[in-house]
């Protein structure tokens, strides 16, 4: 029941998280920032705008991106295998990138290609995280992970660091907001969407927030307090990093993911598995 409600309200929760993010970010920059409900005001305003599009296929892909992200969320919450949920996420990436490829704008196409580089960077780490959970709790089911006696974080500190390292890539935060890169390619895959169609992509991104921070929450195991604490800590950390770093280029992102984050996760899994205390 909780899972169904959580899935249904995922866009709203994500919207709130985005609202909080904007406030927190503003406070970090000594601004007051927009009201907490600003994302929802934006939502209403965008829905009222005159719908415009480049062509129907492109506009439709925006909607499919939203639906498939939401569906991936449902798979995460209602299914019993985290791996499947991780693979479902690729469908939404497919919709987004195919849509972005289909317009004649250079910015959009470049954004789509960079989005694929993002995928190459974070996907192996996410799967290693899921495998590490399996190693600790013996299950791919998040319910089992949430009822495990141990706190997974204590056994998987390096895996946790690897996950935190990939969150900026997943959510397009600086220093890895390469696919969006507002000053450079003006939003990348998002650029050609407007009005209600942009709203769909925008809301899809909110759901990604919930999706990602749910993975962080799992590191608390049955101790929900630790899980919650981790989410808050990670959230603030990501915001601080986002505020204080400049954008890197895609090569650096790829190198960071492949030569630092993946080895970290692998080392952790190696020692845990060979130590035999799983």
């Amino acid at each position: 029941m909780m899972a169904i409600l959580f899935t249904l309200f995922a866009p709203i929760i994500g919207g709130f998280m985005y609202g909080i993010e904007r406030v927190v970010k503003a406070r970090m920059q000594s601004r007051i920032g927009p009201p907490l409900l600003q994302p929802f005001y934006d939502f209403v305003k965008l829905m009222e705008k005159r719908p415009m599009m480049v062509h129907s296929f492109h506009a439709f892909m925006g909607i499919v991106f939203f639906i498939s992200t939401w569906f991936a969320m449902a798979v995460l919450m209602l299914g019993n295998d985290l791996l499947i949920a991780v693979f479902f996420h690729i469908i939404s990436i497919l919709a987004l990138t195919i849509g972005a490829f289909s317009v004649r704008s250079s910015y959009s196409i470049m954004g789509a290609m960079r989005e694929l580089i993002h995928l190459v960077s974070y996907e192996p780490v996410i799967i290693l995280v899921v495998v590490a959970f399996y190693l600790v709790t013996g299950s791919f089911d998040y319910r089992m992970i949430l009822s495990a006696d141990t706190i997974p974080l204590l056994k998987l500190p390096l895996v946790f660091i690897a996950l935190v390292g990939t969150i900026p890539m997943l959510l397009h935060k600086s220093p890895f907001d390469i696919a969006e890169a507002h000053q450079e390619i003006i939003g990348g895959p998002d650029i050609e969407y407007s009005g209600p169609f942009y709203e769909a992509v925008y809301t899809g991104r909110w759901i990604e927030y919930v999706y990602v921070f749910f993975l962080v929450f799992l590191f608390g195991g049955s101790n929900y307090f630790v899980g919650g604490l981790l989410v808050v800590f990670t959230f603030l950390l990501i915001m601080a990093i986002d505020n204080s770093t400049a954008r890197l280029d895609y090569r650096k992102m790829l190198k960071f993911a492949w030569f630092i984050l993946i080895p970290l996760a692998i080392v952790n899994i190696f020692f845990l598995a060979l130590g035999g205390n799983s």
């Binding site: 719908p51 415009m52 480049v54 506009a59 439709f60 004649r104 650029i191």
Partner: peptide
């Protein structure tokens, strides 16, 4: 989409 206006990409 029939009723949506079309525009050129930016």
């Amino acid at each position: 989409f029939k009723k949506v206006d079309k525009m050129h990409p930016y």
